[in-house]
Write a protein that binds this DNA or RNA. Sequence first.
RNA 1: GGGCGGUUGGCUCAGCCUGGUUAGAGCGCUGCCUUCACACGGCAGAGGUCACUGGUUCGAAUCCAGUACCGCCCACCA
Length: 845
Amino acid sequence: MAKPLDARTTQAESRWRSKWSETGIYRYDPRRGRDETFVVDTPPPTVSGSLHVGSVCSYTHTDLMVRYQRMRGQNIFYPMGWDDNGLPTERRVQNVFNVRCDPSAPYDPELRLEFGRGEDLVLVSRRNFIELCDEVVAEDEKKFKDIFQRVGLSVDWNQNYATIDERCRYVSQFSFIELIKAGHAELRDAPTMWDVDFQSAIAQAEVEDRVRDGHLWRVRFAVEGGGEVHIATTRPELLPACVAVTAHPQDDRYAQLVGKNAITPLFAAPVPIIADEEADPKKGTGVLMTCTFGDAADVEQWRSLDVPAREVIGRDGRIKNAPWGEVPWVSKDPHAARGVHDKLAGLTVAQARRAIVDMLGEAGCLVGSPEPVTRPVKFYERGERPLEFVVSRQWFVNLLDKKDALIEQGRKIQWHPESMRRRYEDWVLGLNQDWSVSRQRYFGVAIPVWYEVRSDGSVNYDSLILPERSDLPVDPSAEAPHGYDEAQRGRPGGFVGDPDILDTWATSSLSPLILTGWPDDPRRTAALYPADMRPQAHEIIRTWTFYTIARSLLMDGSIPWYHAAISGFVVDPNRKKMSKSKGNVVLPTDVLDEHGSDAVRYWAASSRLGVDTAIDESVYKEGRRLTTKLRNAARLVHGFEGVSGDATNALDLAFVARTRASVERVTAAWESWDHARALELSESWFWADLCDNYLELSKARAYAGDPSALGTLRKAIDVALRLFAPVLPFVTEDLYNEERDAFISVHRAAWPLPAEMEGAGSADPFDVAVQVLAEVRKAKSAAQVSVRWPVTTMQVRGPEAFLSPLRTVMSDVESTLNAGASELVIDESRDRCDVVATLGQSDPS
RNA sequence: GGGCGGUUGGCUCAGCCUGGUUAGAGCGCUGCCUUCACACGGCAGAGGUCACUGGUUCGAAUCCAGUACCGCCCACCA
């Protein structure tokens, strides 16, 4: 059981937090140029519920690099954003206030609602709804900010945005209008993936496969002119939507049928039998039906075959009432077809499936019994019912024709770890749809478009009315375009506003631009864009990474950042993903309370980018151990009295050389974005070289006030504090300022560089001294005596190459070991040394 | 089905790119050592056929090929 966090640590952490905030040491300086500025495109966390401990880990990873860069003299632009637009917020607001948005309701400026559910459901205008959303997210933002500050993120809190705020709406709408003008975004009336519960279009990136049990039915189709063909399907309810039947061109079983018509059972619709490479002879019966629309393949075939669409599933996920009646010509027996359809109309997909299977069975059109199958089914990632393809009017951003360019952009970016680039490329290569950006929701950035209404009252979707830049952000459902007044809304000769909002990623994908003054302040933009670093989790490579790269490409062909730092997941100690249902969620506030900020940061810093990390109590303990060790080492050195001088003693010089080599390696690790390696190297230098060995070896001289030892020790502590400052910002700041009258932040101090340790020569004397030390310690341990136990005589036998450096530091070795006379014997026959120590007979005390 | 990552002492991980003396660290474990920075410490120790198979090489944890298992990402679902 770990000892509770001592009050000193907690108080120091909170004191330094306040001090940093008061003194503004993390503030961005807009006067400095791009080449000396390090820009972070911080992920705006979704502010709903509580912050995940995994977020604490990955945000800390960012802060580690930021603090390193700051100490390297970089001007840091490290903002914070909040992602508050979109569905999660809407759902929370609906629950918290018991309201629903009614876009047709007028705005009520006096509306005041209490937190907690009211008795009756209240319908509010879109603007009121958005205001309520603002209210709710403000609460969450406070909680998130508190945790981020506790963990010591060196964010410049003056650089802040929320994806629903005016600035973001402005940037998002402006950029979208630019996409329209450039022909990258267009309105299409086309089959789109649709969530029947959320009543909204969904983009490919928001879709996930879930494995579901189902059945494979074999259905008998008659062939015009005689014969029959069996098709296999898991979705018989789409039979009325069947527009073609396909078989593979090399499939001999069906070759003679191609070109003829099949007749669908129950509906008696003639549909062409077509040879198609996509039909796999090994699956099902080798023959499948193309329906409008069961899946993306259907959409593709429907396009390429140029057959009519027969949409049977409505936006509510139920079988439509009318379509069959609207196109009676497709059936050879319209009356019977209508009779069948009437039984299906209004049923959900699942109900219709059962009903149609029953009817097919009665009609003798099922072959054999259904075969149970499990197959992946597409769901909206937040949805509960399978997605359907429905025809609707949506805005799309064209990306399918830009795969090559998107991959090319990805290659200009450095990925950490490198393997994540492949994930991005795989996603790009697997794209099969353009980006559907309109969402039939309320809390988000409105699509900034109106459409003209013709004199006959119909909407002319080809005739867009775009807002002026000076009017942005706009809400087309509440504001009239220039040259019109509100009375003309929906009237012949008037206008209608696009009722939809943009996909949340349409705004998030502009995150590297949002705070850069784009597009109105080109000087600021040039100083902040592209960003240096995009930190994020790997799960959103398909969304945030991808869309951001795409937006920059479409904007001006730029890349959004130079480095993408991808963090892994944090999993529970059993390597399982944390989830509320499993009850294995670890709250950031709990670990911070229990172990302290520095220890939690130490844990985060121990994990490498891209690697999944398990919650591990022992690592927090290790972090606390390190902070304690730092305090104690600093206390010892700060307690020595005497004047510091230059290092002149042989051991001191050798230790400086050893330190210089370590600093070089630590710095190289930071430069290669490997904070875990940097920490490991810093630690082994500090713990072994400095504390276990050099401190012991120089202690006697330090107590005696030797200026060389004192100068070297003080320098070593100073280096240690700076080396650990990125990882342990609190304890290092505390110790750095322990001896100072006026506050100077270690986080503004210069990173230790080898240049500070020039002229130290070789580290050999230190290394050989350590070897002799280890030998004698071993002997004392074997004899079960204390480290201070006296050594009466000591003989070191070895080659001159070893003894020569040892000779220069022998007095320190002797005093550390409490040894009397010692003898060095040259023996070139061995490549190492032997140490023979005779221990004293009695306790020194 | 495709792609990526992993498999090293009881646990968590490093080392692998650039093959070469007894494979490292922390935790845990064992023994010893406490007035002189630190017992949230120090010293010493036990514990590993580096997943498996084959290959390259004088030499393989490290390079190559394949297999198994674990995890993640993706996939037009008949």
